[in-house]
Design a binder for these strands. Structure first.
Lengths: 219, 219
DNA sequence: TCCATGCGTTAGAAGGTATCACGCAAACAA
DNA sequence: TTGTTTGCGTGATACCTTCTAACGCATGGA
C-alpha cells in the first residue's frame, strides 16, 4: 500500500505525503496536550494548517486511524526512553523516576495509552505488541537486578503458568510479579495525580510516588 | 431556586420535575454503561424518552451539569457501599473486595469518577467533598484495624504535616499512609483492568488484585 | 508533450450541543 | 367557575463535529 518512512527517499509524492502526515501529527499532539485526546478535532487541525477539513482524509482514513498512530508513537517514545535509560545502566528505581518524568512531560500522552480508552475508539491488536515492548524492558530490568526476592505467593504460581505477556522472556516468577507490581503501583499513583485527584488534598504527589517507587523496587 | 428531593412532597410541579430528572439520569446511566461517559448524548436520551432534544434543557442546564450529577451519584453510591460494609464490621481486606465488586458491577461508573476526566468537563469543588467522604470511611477502617504498623518513613513525616485531605480525622501517619496506599495500589490494578490493558496478557486480573489487596492490608 | 495519478476544494448528509420564541396545559387565585 | 400565571415541550435555528462524494487542477512520469 503506502510506504512512507520519511527517511527512506522514494518518490516525491510519497515524500510530500510523509511530510504532511508528520505535520498533522504535530498539530494533533498540540491539541491533545492542550485539551486531551477526546477533544482532538480533525477540523481544527485542518484549520490550523490552512486546509479545509476533508483534505486530511487523504492522509488518515478517519479520526481513529490518527489516534492509533499517536498511540503507536507514544508507546514507541516510552519504550525508547526506557530502553535508552536501561542500557545506560539505570536501576529499576531509576526507571521509576524516568516513568514519572516521561509522564509529566506530557500528561495527555501518558493518559492516551494508559488512561481510560477514548470514546468510540477501538485499539488494534498492534498496540499489544508495543505494550509488550515496554514490558520487555521492564522485565529485563527486573531480572537483571539482584533484588531481595519477593516471597513465594499464589500469584507467582499463577504467573508461572500464565506468562503469555512475557513472551519468550526468561524471567522468574518473582521477576514477573515485580514487573507487574512496578507497573500497577506506579500507574496507580501517577494516573490519579494526572487526573487531578490529588489536587486540594494537601500533600505532595511526588513524595507518595517516591515512596511507592522505593517500595516496589525493593528499597 | 429549586428544591426537588423526590421524597419531600412539595408542589406537583416539583414532584413531576424530580421524577423526570430521575428518569433522565436512569437513561444516562444506561448510555454510560453501554459506551462510556464521553458518548453520553442528551439528544439520544431525549429520543429514548420520546421527547425532543431541547426539552431536556428544562431539567439540566447542559451536558456538564448532568455529568456532574451522575458523578455525585457515583461517589455517593461508593461511599454508601463502603460505609454499609464498614459498619457491618468488614475488615480493610473486605473493603478491598467490596471496591472491586462495586467497580466491576458498572465499570464505567468507576471510570467516571476515578478515570481520565471526560473531555471538556470541569469538576465543581463539590466533588472534593464527596471524594473526602469515601476517604473518611477508608481512614476509619485503617485506624480501626490494629495492623502491623508500616515502618516510619519520610512520606509519613510529610503526611503528618499535610493532612488537609483527612479533615478532622484523628488518623495516625501510618494510617494515613495505609489509606493512600490502599487507594492508589488498588486503583492501579483496577483501572488497568477496566481499561482493558490486561486483556491478552494471559493472567487473571483477579489474582493480581487479590495479591495487591493482601499486601496493602497487611496480609 | 501528454496523461494518469492524486491532492485540495466545495457541497452536503447525519448527528451533536445549545438558544430562542412560541403555544398550550397545568397549577393557582379570585 | 373563571381568569392568570407559571412553566413544559415544541420546531426553527446556529454552530460544531466526522465523514462521503464529485469536481478541478497541479504535479510527476513516460
Amino acid at each position: 500500500m503506502d510506504r512512507m518512512d520519511p527517511t527512506e527517499a522514494t518518490t516525491p509524492r510519497q515524500r510530500y505525503r510523509a511530510q504532511v502526515r508528520a505535520e498533522i501529527k504535530r498539530h494533533a499532539w498540540e491539541q491533545i496536550a492542550a485539551a486531551g485526546a477526546s477533544a482532538l478535532s480533525l477540523n481544527a487541525i485542518a484549520k490550523q494548517m490552512g486546509l479545509s477539513g476533508p483534505a486530511l482524509y487523504r492522509y488518515f482514513a478517519n479520526r481513529d486511524e490518527l489516534i492509533t498512530e499517536l498511540i503507536r508513537d507514544a508507546y514507541q517514545s516510552l519504550a525508547d526512553t526506557f530502553r535508552a535509560r536501561a542500557e545506560a545502566g539505570t536501576s529499576l528505581r531509576g526507571l521509576a523516576d524516568t516513568l514519572r518524568v516521561w509522564a509529566l512531560d506530557d500528561p495527555q500522552r501518558y493518559l492516551l495509552i494508559y488512561g481510560t480508552p477514548v470514546p468510540g475508539y477501538h485499539a488494534p491488536e498492534d498496540t499489544t505488541r508495543l505494550s509488550a515492548e515496554v514490558m520487555a524492558v521492564l522485565l529485563d530490568a527486573c531480572a537483571a537486578e539482584g533484588l531481595p526476592e519477593l516471597p513465594p505467593s499464589p500469584l507467582q504460581a499463577h504467573l508461572a503458568d500464565h506468562r503469555a505477556w512475557a513472551g519468550e522472556h526468561p524471567a522468574t516468577p518473582p521477576a514477573l510479579h515485580r514487573a507487574l507490581a512496578f507497573w500497577t503501583r506506579l500507574h496507580g499513583v501517577l494516573s490519579l495525580e494526572l487526573a487531578g485527584h490529588f489536587t486540594g488534598m494537601g500533600f505532595d504527589p511526588a513524595r507518595l510516588y517516591d515512596a511507592e517507587a522505593e517500595a516496589v523496587t525493593g528499597g
